[in-house]
């Protein structure tokens, strides 16, 4: 049994939105859940956050940026193709509470993972202030969707090609200056989440970060996704993926995330060479 792709739509040059048939997952998914995907036989298992779901149609939505071999392989798939394996929903759903005013901060493709959380927070009665950042204007995604569920939306790009030039921390600082912010949800690159945590720590604003640690099974079996939170070992897959950002040891996480950097580069180069020669991988 495979998992057919119903839709594959490019959101940006390297970012694709997939609607995938996974009826069992669709019935149970909540904001914050993720799935483990194996694109094809022989492939690795990668965790991907569920962006949306439709229990009636039996589909889930994933948004994936092609950054390595497996995600490039996935980017080559079209509607009508299928994924070999989809397991989920995994992890704990995001704890959605009534905080008051909440800042939702997304970096890069992390914005896709932030969207269902922002929606759920808004539905729960919070005022949602969104800040989304990207390297370049082409990589700004889900602007309309975020705007629809946010009371305010700020956009930043590293090069200033869209919205404000700079990092998401700029608008976040202004938000916290201008009004009381009761909680912050940050999803994006580790460096971004760490910066947000450092920014909210002195103000003692409760902050959640969603940790996309390396994992194999996603069910608590391998321990590869272990992170140190408040001095204790936690497994991102079963204890997370969201944790108190002020308690996370980001330095350790950054080192562990680079553990297979050389192998990831080698696999990617090999895959792209094979694609260029028309041989596939």
């Amino acid at each position: 049994m495979t998992f057919p792709i119903r839709e594959a739509v490019a959101l940006a040059p390297t970012i694709t939105r997939y609607v995938i048939e996974a009826p069992l997952v669709a019935r149970k998914r909540q904001a914050g859940h993720f799935v483990i995907v194996r694109v094809a036989e022989g492939g690795e298992r990668i965790p991907l956050t569920i962006v949306d779901g439709d229990a009636g149609r039996g589909t889930i939505t994933l948004i994936v940026q092609a950054v390595g071999k497996t995600t490039r392989q996935m980017a080559a798939l079209r509607a009508g193709d299928a994924l070999a394996d989809v397991l989920g929903p995994l992890g704990n759903p995001t704890p959605i509470a009534v905080h008051g005013a909440v800042a939702c901060v997304g970096g890069g493709v992390g914005t896709a993972e932030l969207l269902p959380i922002a929606r759920a927070l808004r539905a729960a009665g919070n005022a949602v202030h969104a800040v989304i950042g990207a390297r370049h204007r082409d990589l700004v995604i889900l602007e309309t969707e975020m705007a629809a569920c946010a009371d305010s939306l700020a956009i930043t790009t590293d090069d200033g090609s869209r919205g404000r030039m700079g990092l998401v921390t700029g608008p976040l600082e202004e938000l916290m200056e201008a009004r009381r912010i009761d909680a912050v949800y940050a999803i994006g690159p580790l460096a971004m989440m760490r910066a947000v945590a450092e920014q909210t720590r002195p103000r003692q604003v409760p902050t959640w970060a969603s940790l996309n640690a390396l994992m194999v099974d996603g069910t608590g079996m391998c321990g590869g996704c272990r992170v140190t939170v408040g001095g204790a070992m936690k497994f991102a897959c079963v204890d997370g993926p969201e944790f108190d950002a002020h308690a996370v040891d980001f330095d350790e996480l950054v080192r562990r995330a680079r553990m297979y950097a050389a192998e990831e580069r080698a696999a990617d180069t090999r895959f792209q060479a094979a694609c260029a020669s028309g041989g596939g991988a």
Partner: peptide, 9 residues
């Protein structure tokens, strides 16, 4: 395969 009892069902 791909069914985690406790999560998928």
């Amino acid at each position: 395969t791909n069914v985690l009892v406790g999560r998928t069902a």
